[in-house]
Amino acid sequence: MNLNNQLSIGAFRNEWQKASMSLLYTCGFLSNGYESFFKKHNVTSQQYNALRILRDQFPKPVSTSFLREKMLDKMSDASRLVSRLNAKGYVTVTQNPTDKRLVNILISSEGLSILSGIDKELYLLDALLQGLTEEEAATLVELLYKVRESITNTEERMASVEVATA
């Protein structure tokens, strides 16, 4: 089935619209695959991402703003995410001694343990894209980088136009 039928769109304005709609549609499939995988481990993909970041920083504690900056999903509510991880015992949260407005977040031994179990099965996520050859996957990475660059450049141009017209 072609993309037009899958999305119930009669015609696309141009190939750029078709490409962006295809990316969004595919992202949904990929996200669902990731969520199903992580659900078996009693975490969400965002929680896993936060734990992965915390493990990379361990034993150094980090702030919620650092965590938000490094997250794949920049729109995530890092404070709520940390609260849920803390409730599960996967992180410890303490007040920053030098700045009382900040908290220090540190992955716990239980958090490290859950990541260790997930690490053993991460290869299953690779299977989501095994319809591509490794060369095609590498090309896709390069193309997606170009997409992100294009988005960043467009956002910067739009912001400068807004400033100039204000």
Results as ranks from 00 to 15, higher is better:
residue 99 D to V: 14
residue 141 V to N: 02
residue 154 T to I: 06
residue 112 L to R: 11
residue 95 Q to M: 07
residue 120 K to N: 06
residue 12 F to E: 06
residue 149 E to V: 01
residue 83 S to I: 12
residue 116 S to F: 08
residue 48 Y to T: 13
residue 48 Y to S: 15
residue 159 A to H: 01
residue 104 N to K: 08
residue 81 L to D: 09
residue 151 I to A: 01
residue 126 D to P: 00
residue 123 Y to M: 12
residue 52 R to I: 13
residue 46 Q to D: 08
residue 9 I to C: 03
residue 90 Y to W: 14
residue 27 C to I: 07
residue 147 V to I: 12
residue 85 L to H: 07
residue 153 N to C: 07
residue 96 N to H: 12
residue 148 R to G: 13
residue 82 V to S: 14
residue 18 K to Q: 08
residue 6 Q to C: 01
residue 19 A to P: 02
residue 38 F to D: 09
residue 47 Q to R: 00
residue 71 M to Q: 10
residue 131 G to R: 05
residue 43 V to Q: 07
residue 78 A to F: 04
residue 7 L to V: 07
residue 143 L to V: 14
residue 66 F to A: 13
residue 69 E to G: 06
residue 24 L to H: 01
residue 18 K to T: 03
residue 92 T to L: 14
residue 39 K to G: 03
residue 1 M to F: 14
residue 56 D to V: 08
residue 17 Q to K: 05
residue 21 M to E: 15
residue 115 L to Q: 07
residue 103 V to N: 14
residue 78 A to P: 11
residue 10 G to W: 01
residue 147 V to W: 00
residue 97 P to A: 12
residue 152 T to W: 00
residue 79 S to P: 00
residue 11 A to E: 12
residue 166 A to N: 15
residue 134 E to H: 05
residue 99 D to G: 12
residue 135 E to Q: 00
residue 135 E to G: 06
residue 26 T to Q: 03
residue 123 Y to L: 13
residue 38 F to T: 11
residue 101 R to V: 14
residue 119 D to E: 15
residue 127 A to K: 03
residue 19 A to N: 01
residue 90 Y to P: 08
residue 45 S to H: 04
residue 13 R to A: 15
residue 72 L to G: 10
residue 127 A to G: 11
residue 55 R to Y: 03
residue 139 T to Y: 00
residue 15 E to R: 09
residue 141 V to T: 02
residue 12 F to C: 10
residue 39 K to R: 07
residue 102 L to R: 10
residue 30 L to Y: 04
residue 11 A to K: 06
residue 48 Y to G: 10
residue 139 T to S: 01
residue 74 K to V: 02
residue 13 R to D: 13
residue 144 L to I: 14
residue 84 R to S: 15
residue 48 Y to C: 15
residue 14 N to T: 07
residue 83 S to V: 11
residue 70 K to F: 09
residue 137 A to Q: 04
residue 58 F to Q: 02
residue 8 S to E: 13
residue 105 I to K: 02
residue 138 A to K: 13
residue 155 E to D: 11
residue 119 D to A: 10
residue 139 T to P: 06
residue 130 Q to H: 14
residue 59 P to W: 09
residue 134 E to T: 14
residue 108 S to M: 13
residue 57 Q to K: 15
residue 127 A to D: 09
residue 116 S to M: 12
